[in-house]
Design a protein around this nucleic acid. Structure first.
Length: 420
RNA sequence: GGAAGCGUGCCAGAGCGGCCGAAUGGGACACACUGCUAAUGUGUUGUGCUCGCAAGGGCACCGAGGGUUCAAAUCCCUCCGCUUCCGCCA
């Protein structure tokens, strides 16, 4: 939810943000009028309640003889209060709906849609192989380590088995990510991956992208698409102590996505799948620190990319491609030789106070007053990274060189050899 | 899955249907006293919404949501959570 105070003072800011996202600026005016209407309704109900309260006290003190007449008036007041409260509730609902309809205000993101990103920088140089390039699935199958057919047999399309060295490679990668994060002072977490509607709603995943989310109707729970969700809800309705800096967590979890609307896209291999593992960073900080914290998270991501030795670029995502909660987002995209393209491996979002406002996450400022905190998240490693690692480190015979940082997790092996 | 009990402010812990936003104790903070610390004394010690330039008002909140009543922390219902016991599965 955006800050209503800011909206009242500077509605143009919100209109401009909507336009930059390619979204409808009119929702801003709907929210403004809902806000005015709600305040009027609240005021009316408050006044009536005050009257009823005061009058009720006189009944308590009245003599038995006077009571019947007073009770009569009391009933009238009660009915008036009830009516006012119904109006108040309706006004609140209208406001809440209008409030939820507005995504976070962008902060520095370039205007436009998916293609309008800005490339911040390139790191590393794509290797030109002097032999026929294999894609990650061909390599993984050659290693006997990615099994899509049995994934489909057991669970359907976009499911897979990692076995042997790819299973190990994933563990090595995720372990390295967690170890790196702990080294930077983050608290490691294994979060629940089934969450209540409030957690999903609070993190902004039940808006436009609701059909991306698996829902267990029988239990009214959702499977998370990222551990950002439980990590954000972890401190919901709490007042945090941020006096000694941001609170940083790193979660390791499986992630589940329906991939609705992506039929035909990335159908080969494990680039786009319904279930994958991810190590995710999550920070709670003061709003003034959020932009700097965002850069820090990006830095940690780049450190991981350097460790796996793949060429990548960093993009500043355009407003229209931001999630509901994000004010700004940087993606790191690795070079995939098989596609001769950069594909997203990490994504770090600054959600400013948007998620925290919904989730009730606050901190105390210098004066001891509660304020809404800012939240940020960022990817440190995912199953998809295996794609970039396999492809960029492939050798003519279908073997794959193991980046030095991952060797400890593979029993020290320097090269993964094909089994056939 | 069945049964019982419980759910109040930072913590502990009271609370006849009106005088309870809430006793009391502890903690924390401020001031005073003391050579320092400790002890002692006094005071402060919630959040949200709303009106107001401000001072300061008003309303709401006692696990959540409904209901009864002129009036509910207090009565009733549902749900959630915790504890204990029984059963079942690992």
């Amino acid at each position: 939810m955006i800050d209503l105070r800011i909206l009242r003072e500077d509605p143009d800011l919100a209109r401009a943000s909507q336009s930059a996202r390619g979204a409808d600026p009119a929702v801003v005016d709907r929210l403004l009028s809902a806000d005015v209407a709600r305040r009027a309704a609240v005021s009316t109900a408050d006044t009536l309640r005050a009257e009823q309260k005061a009058f009720g006290r006189t009944i308590g003190r009245a003599s038995a003889a006077d009571r019947p007449a007073l009770l009569e008036r009391g009933k009238q007041l009660s009915a008036e209060v009830k009516a006012a409260e119904v109006a108040e509730t309706e006004a609140n609902q209208v406001l809440a709906a209008a409030h939820l309809a507005i995504p976070n205000l962008i902060e520095g993101a370039p205007a436009g849609g998916e293609q309008d990103y800005i490339v911040v920088k390139h790191v590393g140089t794509p290797v030109e192989f002097d032999f026929p390039v294999r894609d990650h699935l061909a390599l993984g199958e050659g290693l006997g380590a990615i099994d899509m057919e049995r994934g489909a047999k057991v669970s359907g399309a976009r499911f897979y088995f990692l076995r042997g060295v790819c299973a190990q490679l994933q563990w090595a990668l995720l372990n390295l990510a967690v170890t790196t994060a702990i080294g930077h002072g983050m608290v490691p977490m294994v979060p629940p991956v089934l969450v209540k509607p409030e957690a999903m709603e609070g993190t902004g995943f039940l808006g436009e992208h609701a059909d991306e989310v698996y829902r267990l109707a029988a239990d009214d729970l959702y499977l998370v698409g990222t551990s950002e969700v439980p990590l954000a809800a972890y401190h919901s309705d709490e007042i945090l102590d941020l006096s000694s800096g941001p609170l940083r967590y790193v979660g390791w979890s499986s992630c589940f996505r329906r991939e609705a609307g992506s039929y035909g896209k990335d159908t080969r291999g494990i680039i786009r799948v319904h279930q994958f593992d991810k190590v995710e960073m999550f920070s709670y900080c003061r709003p003034d620190d959020a932009a700097a914290e965002h850069q820090r998270l990006l830095g940690f991501e780049e450190q991981m990319l350097a460790a796996v030795e793949v060429p990548y670029r960093v993009i500043d995502t355009a407003a229209g491609d931001l999630g509901t909660s994000a004010a700004r987002k940087f993606d790191c995209e690795a070079w995939l030789p098989s596609q001769r393209a950069y594909r997203e491996l990490t994504s770090t979002s600054n959600c400013t106070t948007f998620q925290a406002r919904r989730l009730g996450v606050r901190y105390r400022d210098e004066d001891g007053k509660p304020r809404v905190a800012a939240t940020l998240n960022g990817t440190l490693a995912t199953t998809r990274w295996l794609v970039a690692i396999l492809e960029n480190h492939q050798q003519p015979d279908g073997s794959v060189r193991v980046p030095a940082a991952l060797r400890p997790g593979l029993g020290g092996r320097e090269v993964l050899e094909p089994v056939r």
